[in-house]
Write a protein that binds this DNA or RNA. Structure first.
Lengths: 184, 184
DNA sequence: ACAAAAAAAGGACAAATGTCCTAAACGATT
DNA sequence: AATCGTTTAGGACATTTGTCCTTTTTTTGT
Protein backbone atom coordinates (compact mmCIF):
# COMPACT_ATOMS: atom_id res chain seq x y z
CA UNK A 1 0.00 0.00 0.00
CA UNK A 2 3.02 2.27 0.08
CA UNK A 3 3.67 2.16 -3.62
CA UNK A 4 7.13 2.57 -5.10
CA UNK A 5 8.65 2.03 -8.54
CA UNK A 6 12.43 1.89 -8.70
CA UNK A 7 12.47 1.21 -12.40
CA UNK A 8 10.64 4.41 -13.09
CA UNK A 9 12.84 6.42 -10.75
CA UNK A 10 15.91 5.17 -12.59
CA UNK A 11 14.34 6.15 -15.89
CA UNK A 12 13.56 9.68 -14.73
CA UNK A 13 16.90 10.11 -12.99
CA UNK A 14 18.54 9.38 -16.32
CA UNK A 15 16.20 11.76 -18.12
CA UNK A 16 17.04 14.50 -15.65
CA UNK A 17 20.75 13.83 -16.06
CA UNK A 18 20.54 14.00 -19.85
CA UNK A 19 19.81 16.90 -22.15
CA UNK A 20 16.44 17.83 -20.68
CA UNK A 21 16.53 21.23 -19.02
CA UNK A 22 12.72 21.32 -18.87
CA UNK A 23 12.72 18.56 -16.28
CA UNK A 24 13.21 20.17 -12.89
CA UNK A 25 13.65 19.02 -9.34
CA UNK A 26 11.21 20.62 -6.91
CA UNK A 27 10.50 20.55 -3.21
CA UNK A 28 7.15 20.50 -1.49
CA UNK A 29 6.79 20.90 2.19
CA UNK A 30 4.80 18.58 4.39
CA UNK A 31 1.03 19.03 4.04
CA UNK A 32 1.21 21.03 0.82
CA UNK A 33 -0.95 20.05 -2.13
CA UNK A 34 0.71 18.90 -5.36
CA UNK A 35 -2.48 18.35 -7.28
CA UNK A 36 -5.93 19.69 -6.53
CA UNK A 37 -8.99 17.66 -7.44
CA UNK A 38 -10.92 19.22 -10.32
CA UNK A 39 -8.19 21.63 -11.35
CA UNK A 40 -6.10 21.48 -14.50
CA UNK A 41 -2.52 20.35 -14.31
CA UNK A 42 0.19 21.00 -16.86
CA UNK A 43 2.90 18.65 -15.62
CA UNK A 44 3.47 15.29 -14.08
CA UNK A 45 5.50 14.61 -10.96
CA UNK A 46 7.74 11.72 -10.08
CA UNK A 47 8.62 11.28 -6.44
CA UNK A 48 12.34 11.18 -5.71
CA UNK A 49 12.01 11.25 -1.95
CA UNK A 50 9.19 11.32 0.57
CA UNK A 51 5.60 10.14 0.86
CA UNK A 52 2.40 11.54 -0.60
CA UNK A 53 -1.24 10.52 -0.39
CA UNK A 54 -3.79 10.51 -3.19
CA UNK A 55 -7.31 11.08 -1.99
CA UNK A 56 -10.79 11.94 -3.14
CA UNK A 57 -12.73 14.61 -1.38
CA UNK A 58 -16.36 13.61 -1.83
CA UNK A 59 -19.23 16.05 -1.95
CA UNK A 60 -20.37 14.98 1.49
CA UNK A 61 -17.06 16.20 2.88
CA UNK A 62 -15.53 12.80 3.49
CA UNK A 63 -12.08 11.75 2.32
CA UNK A 64 -11.12 8.48 0.72
CA UNK A 65 -7.41 7.71 0.38
CA UNK A 66 -6.56 5.76 -2.75
CA UNK A 67 -2.88 5.16 -2.28
CA UNK A 68 0.19 6.20 -0.39
CA UNK A 69 2.91 7.01 -2.90
CA UNK A 70 6.66 7.00 -2.48
CA UNK A 71 9.88 6.71 -4.45
CA UNK A 72 9.48 6.43 -8.19
CA UNK A 73 5.74 6.93 -8.25
CA UNK A 74 4.32 9.14 -10.92
CA UNK A 75 1.53 11.61 -10.21
CA UNK A 76 -0.82 13.25 -12.68
CA UNK A 77 -0.16 10.86 -15.54
CA UNK A 78 -3.74 9.64 -15.76
CA UNK A 79 -4.91 13.19 -16.19
CA UNK A 80 -2.33 13.68 -18.93
CA UNK A 81 -3.22 10.46 -20.74
CA UNK A 82 -6.94 11.10 -20.63
CA UNK A 83 -6.73 14.86 -20.92
CA UNK A 84 -8.87 15.54 -17.91
CA UNK A 85 -8.80 17.68 -14.81
CA UNK A 86 -7.26 16.25 -11.67
CA UNK A 87 -9.13 13.20 -10.52
CA UNK A 88 -8.12 13.52 -6.91
CA UNK A 89 -5.99 15.50 -4.51
CA UNK A 90 -2.37 14.70 -3.87
CA UNK A 91 -0.86 15.93 -0.62
CA UNK A 92 2.63 15.66 0.85
CA UNK A 93 2.64 13.52 3.99
CA UNK A 94 6.33 14.24 4.50
CA UNK A 95 8.46 16.88 2.85
CA UNK A 96 8.85 15.86 -0.76
CA UNK A 97 11.43 16.02 -3.46
CA UNK A 98 9.94 15.45 -6.90
CA UNK A 99 10.85 15.70 -10.54
CA UNK A 100 8.44 17.87 -12.47
CA UNK A 101 7.96 17.11 -16.15
CA UNK A 102 6.04 19.62 -18.28
CA UNK A 103 3.05 18.25 -20.17
CA UNK A 104 4.53 18.74 -23.67
CA UNK A 105 7.69 16.86 -22.73
CA UNK A 106 5.76 14.02 -21.17
CA UNK A 107 3.38 13.75 -24.09
CA UNK A 108 6.21 13.69 -26.55
CA UNK A 109 7.96 10.92 -24.65
CA UNK A 110 4.68 9.03 -24.47
CA UNK A 111 4.32 9.29 -28.23
CA UNK A 112 7.83 8.09 -29.00
CA UNK A 113 9.39 6.10 -26.22
CA UNK A 114 8.45 2.44 -25.94
CA UNK A 115 10.41 2.07 -22.73
CA UNK A 116 8.30 4.70 -21.00
CA UNK A 117 5.16 3.13 -22.40
CA UNK A 118 6.16 -0.22 -20.97
CA UNK A 119 6.96 1.16 -17.55
CA UNK A 120 3.69 3.06 -17.46
CA UNK A 121 1.61 0.11 -18.60
CA UNK A 122 3.10 -1.99 -15.84
CA UNK A 123 2.50 0.69 -13.27
CA UNK A 124 -1.12 1.27 -14.31
CA UNK A 125 -1.73 -2.48 -14.40
CA UNK A 126 -0.42 -2.78 -10.88
CA UNK A 127 -2.60 0.05 -9.68
CA UNK A 128 -5.65 -1.62 -11.15
CA UNK A 129 -4.74 -4.82 -9.35
CA UNK A 130 -4.33 -2.94 -6.09
CA UNK A 131 -7.35 -0.73 -6.36
CA UNK A 132 -9.73 -3.43 -7.45
CA UNK A 133 -8.51 -6.01 -4.95
CA UNK A 134 -8.87 -3.48 -2.20
CA UNK A 135 -12.34 -2.41 -3.30
CA UNK A 136 -13.47 -6.01 -3.27
CA UNK A 137 -11.83 -6.74 0.04
CA UNK A 138 -13.25 -3.68 1.76
CA UNK A 139 -16.75 -4.36 0.53
CA UNK A 140 -16.74 -8.02 1.39
CA UNK A 141 -14.84 -8.27 4.64
CA UNK A 142 -15.18 -6.71 8.07
CA UNK A 143 -13.38 -3.54 9.04
CA UNK A 144 -11.25 -5.43 11.55
CA UNK A 145 -10.04 -7.68 8.80
CA UNK A 146 -9.04 -4.69 6.70
CA UNK A 147 -7.50 -2.87 9.62
CA UNK A 148 -5.35 -5.90 10.39
CA UNK A 149 -3.91 -5.79 6.92
CA UNK A 150 -3.30 -2.07 7.11
CA UNK A 151 -1.43 -2.31 10.43
CA UNK A 152 0.66 -5.16 9.10
CA UNK A 153 1.74 -3.23 6.04
CA UNK A 154 2.31 -0.11 8.06
CA UNK A 155 4.61 -1.97 10.42
CA UNK A 156 6.45 -3.71 7.63
CA UNK A 157 7.12 -0.39 5.97
CA UNK A 158 7.95 1.47 9.14
CA UNK A 159 5.68 4.33 8.21
CA UNK A 160 3.29 5.88 10.62
CA UNK A 161 -0.12 7.01 9.52
CA UNK A 162 -2.38 9.32 11.44
CA UNK A 163 -5.62 7.79 12.62
CA UNK A 164 -7.53 10.14 10.43
CA UNK A 165 -5.65 8.88 7.39
CA UNK A 166 -6.15 5.29 8.44
CA UNK A 167 -9.88 5.85 8.65
CA UNK A 168 -9.87 7.61 5.28
CA UNK A 169 -7.94 4.73 3.79
CA UNK A 170 -10.39 2.19 5.17
CA UNK A 171 -13.37 4.29 4.18
CA UNK A 172 -14.78 4.45 7.70
CA UNK A 173 -15.26 7.06 10.41
CA UNK A 174 -12.75 7.78 13.12
CA UNK A 175 -15.21 6.42 15.66
CA UNK A 176 -15.35 3.10 13.87
CA UNK A 177 -11.60 2.97 13.61
CA UNK A 178 -11.22 3.47 17.35
CA UNK A 179 -13.67 0.69 17.99
CA UNK A 180 -11.88 -1.61 15.59
CA UNK A 181 -8.56 -0.84 17.28
CA UNK A 182 -10.05 -1.80 20.65
CA UNK A 183 -11.27 -5.08 19.20
CA UNK A 184 -7.73 -5.58 17.95
CA UNK B 1 -20.33 0.83 -16.02
CA UNK B 2 -20.88 -1.12 -19.20
CA UNK B 3 -17.46 -0.49 -20.63
CA UNK B 4 -16.76 -0.36 -24.36
CA UNK B 5 -13.84 0.75 -26.52
CA UNK B 6 -14.58 1.26 -30.18
CA UNK B 7 -11.06 2.39 -30.97
CA UNK B 8 -9.65 -0.86 -29.74
CA UNK B 9 -12.23 -2.91 -31.60
CA UNK B 10 -11.29 -1.15 -34.82
CA UNK B 11 -7.64 -1.87 -34.15
CA UNK B 12 -8.25 -5.57 -33.57
CA UNK B 13 -10.66 -5.88 -36.48
CA UNK B 14 -7.86 -4.61 -38.70
CA UNK B 15 -5.36 -6.96 -37.13
CA UNK B 16 -7.67 -9.88 -37.74
CA UNK B 17 -8.19 -8.82 -41.34
CA UNK B 18 -4.45 -8.54 -41.98
CA UNK B 19 -1.78 -11.22 -42.12
CA UNK B 20 -2.35 -12.62 -38.66
CA UNK B 21 -3.65 -16.18 -38.83
CA UNK B 22 -2.91 -16.66 -35.10
CA UNK B 23 -5.68 -14.24 -34.20
CA UNK B 24 -8.93 -16.20 -34.13
CA UNK B 25 -12.58 -15.45 -33.64
CA UNK B 26 -14.21 -17.57 -30.94
CA UNK B 27 -17.63 -18.01 -29.44
CA UNK B 28 -18.54 -18.50 -25.81
CA UNK B 29 -21.99 -19.38 -24.73
CA UNK B 30 -23.87 -17.57 -22.01
CA UNK B 31 -22.62 -18.34 -18.50
CA UNK B 32 -19.35 -19.89 -19.63
CA UNK B 33 -16.09 -18.77 -18.06
CA UNK B 34 -13.47 -17.09 -20.25
CA UNK B 35 -10.90 -16.63 -17.50
CA UNK B 36 -10.70 -18.38 -14.19
CA UNK B 37 -9.29 -16.59 -11.17
CA UNK B 38 -5.92 -17.96 -10.11
CA UNK B 39 -5.31 -19.94 -13.28
CA UNK B 40 -2.77 -19.20 -15.97
CA UNK B 41 -3.90 -17.73 -19.26
CA UNK B 42 -2.00 -17.81 -22.50
CA UNK B 43 -4.03 -15.39 -24.56
CA UNK B 44 -5.98 -12.17 -24.36
CA UNK B 45 -9.54 -11.70 -25.56
CA UNK B 46 -11.20 -8.73 -27.18
CA UNK B 47 -14.97 -8.66 -27.18
CA UNK B 48 -16.54 -8.28 -30.60
CA UNK B 49 -20.11 -8.83 -29.47
CA UNK B 50 -21.89 -9.50 -26.20
CA UNK B 51 -21.46 -8.70 -22.51
CA UNK B 52 -19.16 -10.24 -19.91
CA UNK B 53 -18.63 -9.61 -16.22
CA UNK B 54 -15.32 -9.52 -14.37
CA UNK B 55 -15.62 -10.58 -10.76
CA UNK B 56 -13.61 -11.63 -7.77
CA UNK B 57 -14.61 -14.69 -5.84
CA UNK B 58 -13.42 -14.01 -2.32
CA UNK B 59 -12.37 -16.68 0.12
CA UNK B 60 -15.56 -16.19 2.11
CA UNK B 61 -17.56 -17.25 -0.92
CA UNK B 62 -18.85 -13.81 -1.85
CA UNK B 63 -18.62 -12.28 -5.31
CA UNK B 64 -17.61 -8.74 -6.16
CA UNK B 65 -18.22 -7.57 -9.71
CA UNK B 66 -15.57 -5.16 -10.98
CA UNK B 67 -16.94 -4.26 -14.38
CA UNK B 68 -19.38 -5.20 -17.05
CA UNK B 69 -17.50 -5.45 -20.34
CA UNK B 70 -18.78 -5.11 -23.87
CA UNK B 71 -17.63 -4.26 -27.40
CA UNK B 72 -13.95 -3.57 -27.79
CA UNK B 73 -12.97 -4.41 -24.24
CA UNK B 74 -9.83 -6.41 -23.72
CA UNK B 75 -9.64 -9.20 -21.18
CA UNK B 76 -6.55 -10.77 -19.65
CA UNK B 77 -4.18 -7.99 -20.62
CA UNK B 78 -3.24 -7.10 -17.06
CA UNK B 79 -2.19 -10.67 -16.45
CA UNK B 80 -0.09 -10.58 -19.62
CA UNK B 81 1.54 -7.26 -18.75
CA UNK B 82 2.36 -8.26 -15.20
CA UNK B 83 2.97 -11.93 -15.93
CA UNK B 84 0.60 -13.17 -13.30
CA UNK B 85 -2.22 -15.67 -12.96
CA UNK B 86 -5.74 -14.50 -13.59
CA UNK B 87 -6.73 -11.80 -11.15
CA UNK B 88 -10.42 -12.46 -11.38
CA UNK B 89 -13.06 -14.52 -13.15
CA UNK B 90 -14.58 -13.43 -16.41
CA UNK B 91 -17.97 -14.90 -17.31
CA UNK B 92 -20.23 -14.47 -20.33
CA UNK B 93 -23.47 -12.72 -19.39
CA UNK B 94 -24.76 -13.13 -22.93
CA UNK B 95 -23.41 -15.32 -25.67
CA UNK B 96 -20.10 -13.84 -26.73
CA UNK B 97 -18.06 -13.41 -29.83
CA UNK B 98 -14.43 -12.59 -29.07
CA UNK B 99 -11.10 -12.29 -30.78
CA UNK B 100 -8.45 -14.46 -29.16
CA UNK B 101 -4.85 -13.29 -29.40
CA UNK B 102 -2.10 -15.69 -28.31
CA UNK B 103 0.29 -14.41 -25.66
CA UNK B 104 3.38 -14.31 -27.90
CA UNK B 105 1.57 -12.28 -30.53
CA UNK B 106 0.23 -9.85 -27.98
CA UNK B 107 3.58 -9.45 -26.27
CA UNK B 108 5.30 -8.82 -29.53
CA UNK B 109 2.79 -6.14 -30.46
CA UNK B 110 3.19 -4.61 -27.04
CA UNK B 111 6.94 -4.43 -27.53
CA UNK B 112 6.77 -2.82 -30.94
CA UNK B 113 3.50 -1.03 -31.59
CA UNK B 114 3.11 2.45 -30.17
CA UNK B 115 -0.50 2.59 -31.33
CA UNK B 116 -1.42 -0.41 -29.24
CA UNK B 117 0.50 1.00 -26.33
CA UNK B 118 -1.43 4.24 -26.57
CA UNK B 119 -4.80 2.52 -26.74
CA UNK B 120 -3.95 0.33 -23.80
CA UNK B 121 -2.66 3.17 -21.68
CA UNK B 122 -5.87 5.06 -22.26
CA UNK B 123 -7.96 2.04 -21.44
CA UNK B 124 -6.08 1.25 -18.25
CA UNK B 125 -6.21 4.89 -17.22
CA UNK B 126 -9.95 4.89 -17.67
CA UNK B 127 -10.32 1.72 -15.64
CA UNK B 128 -8.37 3.26 -12.82
CA UNK B 129 -10.63 6.28 -12.92
CA UNK B 130 -13.69 4.05 -12.82
CA UNK B 131 -12.53 1.61 -10.24
CA UNK B 132 -11.18 4.17 -7.84
CA UNK B 133 -14.13 6.53 -8.14
CA UNK B 134 -16.47 3.66 -7.50
CA UNK B 135 -14.50 2.38 -4.52
CA UNK B 136 -14.61 5.82 -2.99
CA UNK B 137 -18.28 6.29 -3.73
CA UNK B 138 -19.32 2.93 -2.36
CA UNK B 139 -17.37 3.39 0.83
CA UNK B 140 -18.54 6.91 1.47
CA UNK B 141 -22.17 6.95 0.42
CA UNK B 142 -25.24 4.94 1.34
CA UNK B 143 -26.30 1.86 -0.56
CA UNK B 144 -29.42 3.60 -1.80
CA UNK B 145 -27.29 6.32 -3.32
CA UNK B 146 -25.19 3.74 -5.13
CA UNK B 147 -28.19 1.73 -6.19
CA UNK B 148 -29.72 4.83 -7.70
CA UNK B 149 -26.70 5.33 -9.90
CA UNK B 150 -26.67 1.69 -10.92
CA UNK B 151 -30.31 1.71 -11.95
CA UNK B 152 -29.79 4.91 -13.91
CA UNK B 153 -26.89 3.49 -15.88
CA UNK B 154 -28.69 0.22 -16.37
CA UNK B 155 -31.67 2.01 -17.86
CA UNK B 156 -29.54 4.26 -20.02
CA UNK B 157 -27.76 1.27 -21.47
CA UNK B 158 -30.85 -0.87 -21.81
CA UNK B 159 -29.16 -3.81 -20.20
CA UNK B 160 -30.80 -5.89 -17.56
CA UNK B 161 -28.84 -7.23 -14.66
CA UNK B 162 -29.97 -10.00 -12.35
CA UNK B 163 -30.52 -8.96 -8.77
CA UNK B 164 -27.72 -11.23 -7.71
CA UNK B 165 -25.33 -9.40 -10.02
CA UNK B 166 -26.58 -6.03 -8.85
CA UNK B 167 -25.85 -7.01 -5.28
CA UNK B 168 -22.41 -8.33 -6.26
CA UNK B 169 -21.70 -5.08 -8.07
CA UNK B 170 -22.70 -3.02 -5.06
CA UNK B 171 -20.85 -5.30 -2.69
CA UNK B 172 -23.91 -6.02 -0.58
CA UNK B 173 -26.15 -9.00 0.14
CA UNK B 174 -29.32 -9.79 -1.75
CA UNK B 175 -31.29 -9.03 1.38
CA UNK B 176 -29.86 -5.55 1.56
CA UNK B 177 -30.52 -4.99 -2.12
CA UNK B 178 -34.17 -5.90 -1.70
CA UNK B 179 -34.48 -3.51 1.18
CA UNK B 180 -32.80 -0.73 -0.78
CA UNK B 181 -35.14 -1.34 -3.71
CA UNK B 182 -38.14 -0.96 -1.39
CA UNK B 183 -36.76 2.31 -0.08
CA UNK B 184 -36.44 3.38 -3.73
C1' DA C 1 -55.25 -27.06 -13.49
C1' DC C 2 -52.85 -28.83 -9.67
C1' DA C 3 -49.12 -30.36 -6.78
C1' DA C 4 -44.46 -30.45 -5.96
C1' DA C 5 -40.19 -28.25 -6.33
C1' DA C 6 -37.41 -24.27 -6.91
C1' DA C 7 -36.56 -19.39 -6.64
C1' DA C 8 -37.38 -14.93 -4.77
C1' DA C 9 -38.95 -11.90 -1.11
C1' DG C 10 -39.36 -10.55 3.44
C1' DG C 11 -39.58 -10.83 8.90
C1' DA C 12 -36.94 -10.97 13.12
C1' DC C 13 -33.08 -10.51 15.45
C1' DA C 14 -28.00 -9.68 15.89
C1' DA C 15 -23.96 -7.31 14.62
C1' DA C 16 -21.70 -3.41 12.69
C1' DT C 17 -21.36 1.40 11.78
C1' DG C 18 -22.52 6.35 11.97
C1' DT C 19 -23.89 10.55 14.51
C1' DC C 20 -23.74 13.42 18.23
C1' DC C 21 -22.12 14.71 22.29
C1' DT C 22 -19.35 14.36 26.62
C1' DA C 23 -15.07 13.09 28.96
C1' DA C 24 -10.28 12.51 29.00
C1' DA C 25 -5.62 13.62 27.42
C1' DC C 26 -2.38 16.60 25.70
C1' DG C 27 0.18 21.16 24.78
C1' DA C 28 1.24 25.62 25.06
C1' DT C 29 1.41 29.80 27.71
C1' DT C 30 1.95 32.16 31.74
C1' DA D 1 2.45 23.76 38.32
C1' DA D 2 -2.13 25.72 36.86
C1' DT D 3 -5.23 27.12 33.28
C1' DC D 4 -7.07 27.52 28.99
C1' DG D 5 -7.75 25.68 24.54
C1' DT D 6 -7.36 22.01 21.34
C1' DT D 7 -7.15 17.44 20.11
C1' DT D 8 -8.31 12.56 20.87
C1' DA D 9 -11.12 8.85 22.82
C1' DG D 10 -15.29 6.91 24.05
C1' DG D 11 -20.52 6.51 25.65
C1' DA D 12 -25.31 6.31 24.10
C1' DC D 13 -28.45 5.85 20.82
C1' DA D 14 -30.12 5.44 15.96
C1' DT D 15 -29.50 3.52 11.55
C1' DT D 16 -27.78 0.29 8.45
C1' DT D 17 -26.52 -4.20 7.10
C1' DG D 18 -26.01 -9.22 7.60
C1' DT D 19 -27.70 -13.85 8.95
C1' DC D 20 -31.01 -17.12 9.30
C1' DC D 21 -35.22 -18.79 8.50
C1' DT D 22 -40.14 -18.58 7.02
C1' DT D 23 -43.44 -17.13 3.63
C1' DT D 24 -44.71 -16.05 -0.90
C1' DT D 25 -44.21 -16.37 -5.75
C1' DT D 26 -42.80 -18.64 -9.81
C1' DT D 27 -41.73 -22.58 -12.44
C1' DT D 28 -42.12 -27.35 -13.84
C1' DG D 29 -44.10 -31.77 -14.64
C1' DT D 30 -48.00 -34.51 -15.00
Amino acid sequence: MLRTNTEFLTYIDALYQSNRPEVTLQNFEKDSLLLRQGEKSHRVFVIKEGIAKCFFLEENGKDYILEFMSKGQILGEIEMIKQIDCLCNVAALTSLQVYAIPAPVFKQLLAKDLILNKILLEELAERIINTSSRASFQQLYTVEHGLGKLLELQEKQGMEISKEDMAAYLGITLRSLNRALKGL
